[in-house]
Design a protein around this nucleic acid. Structure first.
Length: 571
DNA sequence: GCCGTTTTCGGCCCGACTGTTTTCAGTCG
């Protein structure tokens, strides 16, 4: 069992223990164990019970539970807790804004055991009438339910990327043709995927369902399928799968038609004709040929959303999109100083060995107590270690950064004397996420105006498919970043991808630089940068405007100049 | 349930906010 799955099981156990009103100290122990397990960087399944017991926060009891999880996929106490809880109540734990205590009340007092009943209870005002509840809590629950309902069957792009490539290879190999490709949302690199769509031109259409039947993870939906379309579901993720079967000479027409969003296909490429009409008129031997026929340069799939790519193409102004290989360094990363899994030295070495030239360490600041945020003397300690490593690892460079919490009033949680010791500062909101647009925007503006703020971190705090970000006035925030020369982060974590790519072109139009930051909490986290690049490309981001695609020297100078300017301002 | 002893019991991480209260419990990060 992977560490992540083990941790997930214990997290569930924590919630269930809370739900069943168990001893709070026992709950705290489990919860501590989760926090400690997150920092373990060896596979837990490789450890014996005696090794497990030596881990911090893990005693005899939890050690044997971890061991049993590995053997059987569960442990008796978890099974017992699950058996004592209706599945619908377990699902309710996912709703943001209410926790186990409130769920317990709803379950016990009202006998609500499913999401449907819960929604009904909200509609009937039964929730608001409960002791300790009110109309706002009821509204929160209702919104949470509707949000999770709307998230059903949807997954993050990162969840399907590898799988969809594998399925293409599988079909190509077994159909003995190269004419199989990913289309649709996945090819356009949308951050959320509802359907994995494939186009295949097999020698014999009947081969496709036969082959797909060999895949145990795929469930066939006979009713929705036809002779030239296979529809079903990938059962691990619940995401829909669709394979369109076409003749070889229609392959590129189909690929084109099922890649672009409707708005792209319906766009006029001259004064009278749209791309869809064009592609219905004749057969093409490549997508390049289609655009050529339309008198346009080739448009990358991720841009085909029907926004302004046609206008760009018509003026020959298509951006030269950023690539994974363009990135020179990795900014905004955590270490064991705060809530990361790997030490500073490990994070630095791995970064260098991946071929990058610089690393920005941005552990949590002191207000983030829950994440072991750095109080002032630990900042100094970290800076000493960075100095030492920089000596050893030169010309590779570690920048002293911090992810400073933006407090409720828009100020940062260190004073200027501390802020001045960093090479750069990523300012992010982590607390009080429930805000009106005006308050959230003003809070961000406060941070943007701080002369020490270098980068604005995950601007909306959203967690895709889990919670919406706080609402912000994007234009005002981006305009302020332009005015105060603050770089905007594209947080590359597949759950965040925040700044949303739909605002990248506006930021660029205002001259705002963007930085693709993984927010890595382990060395593996660096690889999330790939997802950041994907959405950045959708937004039209170029190498020139990607801050961490700049070479080391240029980045060093930028930080230095900004710091000097900040020091002059606060004097 | 874990830990660290004043070493087999007793104590056990925060701070802010919200929504509900009318002094505080629940939730979040």
């Amino acid at each position: 069992m992977k560490n992540k799955e083990i941790i997930r099981s214990f997290r569930l156990a924590v919630s269930l223990l809370e739900l069943h009103d168990e001893n709070p100290f026992k709950i705290r122990t489990y919860s501590n164990a989760v926090a400690n397990l997150e920092r373990v960087d060896v596979p837990l399944e490789s450890l014996q019970i005696s090794d497990l017991e030596h881990l911090e926060g893990i005693g005899k009891s939890i050690a044997s539970k971890i061991f049993e999880l590995n053997q059987t996929g569960s442990f008796p106490e978890l099974d017992a807790l699950l058996a004592a809880t209706p599945p619908g109540v377990v699902d309710m734990l996912r709703i943001k804004g209410i926790g186990p205590k409130k769920i317990r009340v709803i379950w016990k007092e009202l006998g609500v055991e499913t999401a449907e009943d819960l929604l009904q209870a909200c509609e009937n005002n039964q929730i608001a009438a409960l002791k300790g509840f009110g109309s706002k809590t009821q509204e929160t629950i209702k919104n949470g339910l509707l949000y999770s309902e709307s998230s059903k069957g949807k997954v993050h792009y990162a969840t399907v990327e590898k799988y969809s490539n594998e399925l293409v290879s599988f079909l190509q190999t077994n159909l003995q043709t190269n004419l199989v490709a990913v289309a649709g949302e996945v090819r356009r690199r949308l951050e959320i995927i509802e359907t994995m769509l494939f186009i295949a031109a097999p020698p014999d259409p009947l081969q496709v369902p036969v082959l797909l039947q060999q895949r145990p993870e795929l469930q066939f939906d006979e009713v929705k399928s036809g002779p030239f379309v296979w529809r079903g579901q990938e059962t691990q993720t619940g995401v829909r799968v669709e394979v369109k079967i076409v003749a070889a000479d229609s392959f590129y027409n189909a690929l084109f038609q099922y890649t672009g969003a409707a708005a792209h296909l319906n766009s006029l490429y001259n004064d009278t004709d749209c791309l869809l009409q064009l592609v219905n008129q004749q057969k093409f031997a490549s997508e390049e040929e289609i655009y050529q026929q339309a008198g346009l340069p080739y448009i990358q799939p991720e841009l085909r959303e029907g926004r302004q790519e046609i206008a760009w193409a018509r003026e020959n102004q298509l951006p030269d999109l950023i690539t994974d290989e363009d990135l020179q360094g990795i900014l905004h990363n955590h270490t064991t100083y705060s809530d990361g899994a790997h030490t500073l030295a490990t994070m630095a070495t791995y970064c260098r060995d991946q071929g990058y030239h610089y690393l920005g360490i941005c552990d949590h600041s002191k207000a983030a107590f829950y994440a072991n945020g750095l109080v002032e003397h630990r900042v100094k300690e970290q800076h000493r270690e960075i100095d030492e490593l920089n000596q050893k690892m030169s010309p590779f460079r570690i920048f002293k950064g911090i992810e400073a919490d933006i407090l409720a009033d828009g100020s940062l949680d260190y004073n200027d004397d501390v802020l001045r010791t960093f090479d750069f500062v990523v300012a992010s909101i982590h607390s009080n996420l429930k805000m009106e647009e005006k308050k959230a925007t003003e809070r961000l503006l406060g941070a943007i105006q701080n002369p020490f703020t270098t980068i604005l971190g995950h601007p909306t705090g959203r967690l895709l498919l889990q919670r919406e970000g706080y609402p912000i006035d994007y234009k005002t925030v981006i305009d302020a970043c332009a005015f105060y020369k603050v770089i905007v982060e594209i947080n590359a974590n597949p759950w965040r991808l925040d700044l949303d790519w739909r605002w990248v072109d506006y930021a660029l139009s205002q001259g705002v630089l963007l930085s693709i930051n993984p927010d890595a909490h382990s060395t593996g986290g660096y690889h999330d940068m790939h997802y950041g690049v994907q959405v950045a490309r959708k937004g039209g981001l170029t190498k020139e405007m990607t801050f961490n695609a700049w070479p080391l020297e240029k980045v060093t100078n930028y930080f230095e100049e900004r710091r000097i300017k900040a020091l002059a301002e606060v004097k």
